[in-house]
Design a protein around this nucleic acid. Structure first.
Length: 375
RNA sequence: GGGUGAAUAGCGAAGUGGCCAAACGCGGCUGACUGUAAAUCAGCUCCUUCGGGUUCGGUGGUUCAAAUCCAUCUUCACCCA
């Protein structure tokens, strides 16, 4: 348990479950609700730490499994930990590798002990257990670490989801017992698939364990939007009020706003950075595919309401050109914008919560963005 | 002046009697992306009223059938003078 890590709730929106607060960490205080950019391999793709920070980032993510494979946690440890290794002095969170068991292998074998899976990238065979994940995460040295879970595929049968969810709970307990570093916050992950009773069960069981925060996992993996929203609701009401809630892997505008409505504090997602590299840009008036021919001679800023470096210095025509030509700088500029867009969305949400008008704010964003323009 | 080779869709380039509206690449036009196997992937790209129509430098032949064979013209490249 990290004594320096705690959530200070400052305000709860009058009409929704939205909360504004300050998350205190060893590497600084950050406000929630917040969006956390993903830097799987100890780098947010195409961006320097300075550029990430200029977007207003608080926490950023890195991945246990990827860093375990390369360069190996010992290298990171010898470098002085993730912060020193990647030159980021803000808070860092590491995911446990549970998601990679799900996404990286169709031939995974999950037993009580842990998960064996074939990494189809290089044919390698890996074994991860709750204890192994914690051991690696302690060597990496992030501020917030995740316990090892099974991300249950959607759809799955009730019987399988039940068995897996119970196992993930046992893994959570093992992770807690294995975790020794007191300067790291450890989060448990609520599974339970689409089943209300299993989400409730998982949330209650985890809430009874001394975690520093709680994640909702197994969402945004192909299930319908309504199913995802229900999974959040079914889990979050049983989580402790005074601990941070983290909705894993969620990062589209509507999902973030709905998550905040239910009382989620933290979001992470590869979406903004991946979309950026692929030329899809989030703006206050809807999504812009910068590759489209219509932007060839558009000398206006990408988003006239955005304060990011990209929007204040470049035109759509230039971004279009860089994208067409395949220049890396275009990916950088696009990534800066998309990350800043989601971080700013959360900043505005926090202001709205403080003013008790979060519900109105949400409707304003939807109305402006336009439901048919794609989130 | 003589000789040799080549001309294929926007560009490059396969194809050398039927399975060819013609591979593939580039370019062009769209779309997707949610705890990063993702600087990736997918579709469309001669015309069409979706029945079909018009193509492989031009023209004329041979053949049941020609981008593919023959003749000739044009252009280009290289070599010899």
């Amino acid at each position: 348990m990290d004594k320096q890590f705690y959530l200070e709730i400052k305000r709860i929106d009058a009409k929704t479950g939205a909360r504004y607060g300050i998350l205190h960490t060893r590497h600084g205080d950050v406000e929630v609700p917040m969006f956390m950019p993903v830097g799987t391999n100890a780098t947010v793709k195409c961006l320097s730490p300075e550029q990430v920070k200029a977007c207003g980032s608080g926490v950023i993510l890195a991945n246990t499994y990827h860093l375990h494979l390369r360069p190996g946690e010992e290298i990171v440890r010898k470098a002085g930990g993730l912060h020193a290794f990647m030159n980021y002095d803000g808070p860092i969170l590491t995911d446990s590798g549970g998601f990679q068991v799900f996404s990286l292998s169709s031939r995974r074998k999950i037993t009580e002990e842990g998960a064996t899976f074939h990494n189809e990238l290089d044919g390698g065979k890996e074994f991860f257990s709750p204890e192994e994940a914690i051991r690696i995460e302690e060597a990496l040295g992030a501020d917030i670490i995740m316990s090892f879970d099974e991300c249950i595929p959607y759809p799955s049968t009730y019987q399988y989801v039940k068995r897996s969810t119970e196992r993930t709970l046992r893994w959570a307990k093992r992770g807690l017992e294995a975790h020794k570093r007191e300067d790291q916050a450890l989060f448990g992950i609520v599974q339970g698939g689409e089943f209300q009773d299993l989400r409730e069960y998982a949330a209650k069981e985890l809430a009874a364990m001394p975690f520093d925060g709680y994640s909702i996992g197994g969402t945004s993996i192909g299930e319908p939007k309504e199913v995802c929203f229900k999974m959040i609701k079914d889990a979050i009401r049983y989580l402790p009020q005074d601990k941070p809630r983290y909705l894993m892997g969620v990062g589209s505008i509507d999902y973030i706003l709905e998550g905040i409505t239910e009382g989620v504090d933290m979001f992470d997602c590869v979406l903004p950075t991946r979309l950026a590299r692929h030329g899809a840009l989030l703006t206050s008036h809807g999504r812009v595919n910068i590759q489209r021919a219509q932007y060839k001679e558009d000398f206006t800023p990408l988003d006239d309401e955005c304060d990011c470096y990209t929007c204040t210095h470049y035109t759509k025509a230039y971004l279009h050109h860089l994208h067409r030509i395949g220049e890396d700088f275009g990916k950088t500029l696009n990534s800066i914008h998309n990350i800043r867009f989601l971080i700013k969305l959360c900043e505005q949400a926090r202001i709205a919560i403080k003013e008790d008008r979060f519900a109105e704010f949400k409707e304003e964003v939807y109305a402006k963005f336009g439901s048919k323009r794609g989130f």
